[in-house]
Design a binder for these strands. Structure first.
Lengths: 138, 138
DNA sequence: CCGTATCCGATTTGATACTG
DNA sequence: CAGTATCAAATCGGATACGG
């Protein structure tokens, strides 16, 4: 292969067919995961639950700005994919505990790698944006 | 720290403030990057450009299903963040070459890690979804 | 060849009110 | 406490037509 970044083998390293059938990385699991990473609350919730289990209102108070609707929706989505476990304790009043599943924990690692990249290269990105804004202004 | 996944140090490993000020991981660079990963075409474009530089219509033909509008918009966004370089060759007819910048190349690695995770755990996710769909049906 | 402009439907997110 | 229901706003993405 020509000039790829490191040489790390990866599913992304294989030469892609042309044209890409709009499936190869679309209906395949990669897009699902990428989409989840991109949505507004999923990763933040996973990070909080990675620290320790939380109850519903605890998450609601912890996040500042999330609506009940989105909190519930996001948790349900994570639960459906097996990343988060929801445990209902039949007490009065009811208490519901959310936690990461083992599968969810394994996702934290690549997520952290991506977050670390973002922090590490923040300055470069901001400089590029400044240059681009300057170039646009004329 | 209690029961985190591996022990890898990461920006995500630090205990978060409660409540999260809606900035800590929101206006900070992490959300920008996560959003980009989640959008429909950015990563696919970066993968193609990671193989080799491409011209505009070459990308358009390569991707199958992308509109000119989104191709242009996505490339411009990647360019603004310094991930992709756009070189115009003043020939007739004009030719424009897109390629990854060095910064863009460094992003391929965490992206690949995430994609590999998705492929590796595809079965588990699908099983979780089946179970969840079953549980919902009653 | 390499785009831009315009319009429109689909999806995402939030605000608000209400409930077992 | 832990949600649901409903409505509205914002954003995303695609189709089509046109331009340098």
């Amino acid at each position: 292969m020509s000039g790829t970044h490191t040489g790390v083998p990866s599913v992304l390293e294989h030469e892609l067919p042309h044209p890409v059938p709009a499936d190869e990385l679309a209906a395949c699991p990669v897009e699902d995961v990428f989409r989840r990473v991109g949505d507004k609350w999923s990763t933040l919730l996973m990070i909080l639950l990675g620290n320790r289990p939380h109850r519903y209102n605890e998450l609601h108070r912890a996040i500042d700005g999330i609506s009940q609707r989105m909190l519930t929706r996001t948790l349900r989505g994570l639960e459906a994919d097996g990343l988060v476990r929801r445990e209902v304790h039949p007490t009065v009043p009811p208490s519901v505990e959310y936690s990461l599943t083992p599968l969810g924990r394994t996702l934290l690692e690549p997520l952290s790698a991506l977050a670390d990249w973002a922090v590490l290269h923040e300055a470069e990105i901001n400089e590029a944006r400044s240059r681009h804004a300057d170039a646009q202004r004329r």
